[in-house]
Design a protein around this nucleic acid. Structure first.
Lengths: 208, 208
DNA sequence: GTCTATATACGGATAGAC
DNA sequence: GTCTATCCGTATATAGAC
């Protein structure tokens, strides 16, 4: 009964959260009016406060969920001890691009909010998942030792992977303008990058 | 006399602009209160409106200047017909990293403001400097023809260069957290990247 | 749970004295 | 040019009826 209701017509709480996610990610915390969220959700402003008490509390929930979603692909892959470094890179890039094509404005949302207030939630999650001590980083260090790849800080590898994968989405409004691209062209380029980025990463790893 | 005054004590107009640049880039348009700018400039709120009429007009000036500064390194290098592709990449990356170490939050400022309102200023400047038809792009296409580099859309090359150079600064709050880096460590990594990125770019250019 | 009406605070902008 | 005091619209949040 409850399930049926949620499928046919999401609960009010869910409707508000969906609306909030949409408006917050597009306009940021400061640019968002609770009235916009209420309107987007098709409910009254008072109801928003009934469910979530305040704009800030609602925002914290959305931010936490967005950040978790952004980190999920990374964490699961990083700590997996079974797959090779090469396969890890491939699946990470592919997972991310799939996620980002569906939700292109999550990274810019997180990064621009993070700029002003070093968010406590994010700090805590970063500490809980110390990426620099993950199995992935150990694999890189091992490969350096065995002289399979060049001797550069593993942080650079990580930066490169994230940069090549995430930046085009963060900068998409500008890139579309500068490159005179339609959304369709842009998405096609991103699909191409799923295969290209792992190849490029491997090439950079051998640079001396 | 005038010059001396500007060196010793910048004009009020300059003081307000400097304060505005600082606050706007840190908090974005919506997050900025004109009172904050006034305080930062050490002047009264009324004076801000006396000089610039409104928050929006002041913002437009700051945005235009920031965007121009961000594009300058690129445009001058792109249209230069004398230097080789290789040298161009080197000087562009180096120029950008120098600029970004000095003013790390310009890109995130531009990109996050661009997200909501496809800024008219930016649109116009993008049209005026059609990068895809610049000499730099012709050089890439020529190199592809001569089979010196692999046959991929020049847009990918451009994205890669910008990604590797700019993204670390856009994502610095997160990268510092995840990588457990102090500002000093971060800047050192960026300095290293001045030499590394051109090498990496060259490596990716040969990938089939 | 959901609405209308309202309290309260805040932020942009101006009036007017100096 | 620069200040203090103030106006006024708007945004968050709550009271209270249904």
């Amino acid at each position: 009964m409850k399930v049926k209701k949620e499928i046919i017509d999401p609960s009010t709480e869910e409707k508000i959260k969906n609306a909030a996610r949409k408006v917050f990610t597009q306009k940021g915390y400061a640019g968002t009016k609770t009235r916009d969220i209420a309107e987007e959700a098709g409910i009254n402003l008072a109801l928003l406060n009934y469910y979530f008490r305040s704009k800030e509390k609602l925002f914290d929930i959305i931010m936490l969920e967005s950040f978790q979603e952004f980190m999920r692909s990374m964490i699961s892959v990083f700590n997996d001890e079974k797959t090779s470094l090469e396969k890890k890179i491939e699946s990470m890039v592919s997972n991310y691009i799939d996620l980002l094509i569906k939700q292109p404005d999550i990274p810019l949302f997180i990064l621009s909010e993070l700029r002003n207030n070093p968010n406590e939630i994010v700090k805590k999650m970063s500490l809980d998942n110390n990426l620099m001590k993950s199995f992935f980083m150990k694999q890189i260090q091992q490969a350096i030792k065995e002289e399979k790849i060049s001797d550069i800080s593993p942080v650079h590898f990580f930066m490169n992977m994230m940069s090549l994968t995430v930046f085009p989405f963060v900068a998409s409004p500008m890139l579309k303008n500068l490159g005179d691209l339609q959304q369709k062209d842009f998405d096609k380029l991103m699909q191409e990058r799923k295969k290209l980025i792992p190849k490029w990463i491997k090439a950079t790893m051998k640079v001396k």
